[in-house]
């Protein structure tokens, strides 16, 4: 799948990306963000939506955590713990991939 790998163990330099079959969508009727996946509809909270938007295959976990820490003026260690737990859980379900292509 063009440079996106499945079944990943997240590391600090992992660049997470939503695979094609997982779609983050704003649902107009229900007025909320949803994550559509095979046979599943997940309901991310506000922070999770923000994290998912940062999973663009360019930013590493370290980079996106730093960005969030700066934005919320919160301790990086805490954010790191939460973000990794959330993303690893998605990865274990097959709903998160890793971009393994070299950065241009």
């Amino acid at each position: 799948m063009n440079g996106a790998r499945r079944h990943i163990q997240l590391a600090l330099d992992t660049r997470p990306i939503l695979p094609r079959h997982v779609k983050l969508k704003f649902d107009k009727q229900r007025e909320r963000w949803l994550l559509l996946a095979p046979e599943r509809i997940l309901v991310p909270d506000e922070i999770a939506v923000e994290v998912l938007h940062l999973c663009d295959g360019k930013a590493s976990i370290a980079a996106l955590v730093a960005e969030l820490a700066a934005k919320y003026d919160a301790p990086e260690a805490e954010i790191m713990r939460d973000v990794r737990a959330m993303l690893q859980d998605l990865a274990d379900k097959g709903f998160l991939a890793e971009n393994t292509e070299a950065i241009p």
């Binding site: 229900r30 949803l34 994550l35 599943r40 997940l42 309901v43 991310p44 959330m86 859980d89 998605l90």
Partner: peptide
Amino acid sequence: MTDAKSDPLA
């Protein structure tokens, strides 16, 4: 993150 099967969209 919660799963719609268990049901914030219900």
